[in-house]
Design a protein around this nucleic acid. Structure first.
Lengths: 155, 155
DNA sequence: ACATGAGGTGATACTCGGTCTCACTAGCGT
DNA sequence: ACGCTAGTGAGACCGAGTATCACCTCATGT
């Protein structure tokens, strides 16, 4: 608990820099987000913070997403997942089984997208690239399941 | 009205090929979809077919999307738009102002995505590439607006 | 330290897109 | 023509998110 003060300080700092009031609920949401690994739904944050109102959780997430602190990825069904935006520009690897979202980057891809963008009629504002995958964890589990059922058949 | 029989026939044919019953509601939904240019929301179809139940409209759209007859694009906010899937594999140009969705294809992009996919840990199931744009129509309108306001300032 | 007021909060109602339920209907094989 | 069963439609329900509005609290000026 000795070092936790610095996390609070950084969170307060960030909220300050966004030009908004540093309130207790925002602090709580931001701290929880900062502690997250990987992508999460707004609702999961809401559930983990019963002391903070739903509206406030959603408002704060929107605030941080608009400020570029969070980045938003869409699952194939369109439901959004948020994650801390660690790197300037990146794309997503979305696991179709466990719905985890990983970042990935490729300079070559950016270059090609930029080239393609130049040929597109109209003005290109941005792009989004998502790979839908089975992540290694899910593959391993799948493999384990298969091995189990084979063992069952065999014995 | 003389030629409309052939559209009906093609719609019936398609429904048959999907291995499902050819019912009046499905026919109506499929015919309306066939007449659509560009992308549309499920709700808009529902509104245009007051004689067909909401559940049936959504069910039919899902059916056709799963069969690959329709393809689904997600707007930046995650709301889905459907369009007739004219070509085997394509990506989308989504206009951020008027929300129209256009298809685009690039062999080079596919090649690179395939290469990148090979390096991704896990199993790649698919990918999605969207360009967010201002379409030429919206740009033109914007230009017209600007010209108007300049004229106002000048006169 | 205290008053002040604008920005923020939270309970709750609402919206929107979509699915589920279930009694009823109609397509289609016989 | 009959009967089975897939399909239908009204409406309840759901999940994610927004709007409303009385109340609260942070930050500032004195």
């Amino acid at each position: 608990m000795i070092a936790s003060g610095s996390v609070d300080d950084r969170v307060d700092d960030m909220l300050h820099r966004l030009g908004c009031r540093v309130t207790q609920p925002r602090r709580e949401v931001a701290r929880l987000l900062a502690s997250k690994r990987g992508a999460f739904s707004a609702e999961s944050i809401n559930e983990e913070l019963p002391g903070v109102g739903r509206a406030t959780v959603y408002r704060t997430i929107r605030l941080l997403a608009e400020a570029g602190v969070l980045c938003k990825a869409l699952l194939p069904d369109g439901s959004p997942r948020y994650s801390i935006d660690h790197s300037w520009h990146h794309h997503h690897l979305i696991c179709s089984s466990c719905e985890t979202v990983e970042e990935f980057r490729s300079a070559e891809l950016e270059r090609l997208l930029c080239e393609l963008g130049a040929e597109i009629p109209g003005r290109v504002l941005g792009h989004q690239v998502d790979f839908y995958v089975n992540c290694p964890d899910c593959l391993q589990e799948e493999g384990a399941d298969k091995a189990r059922s084979t063992a069952d058949n065999g014995g």
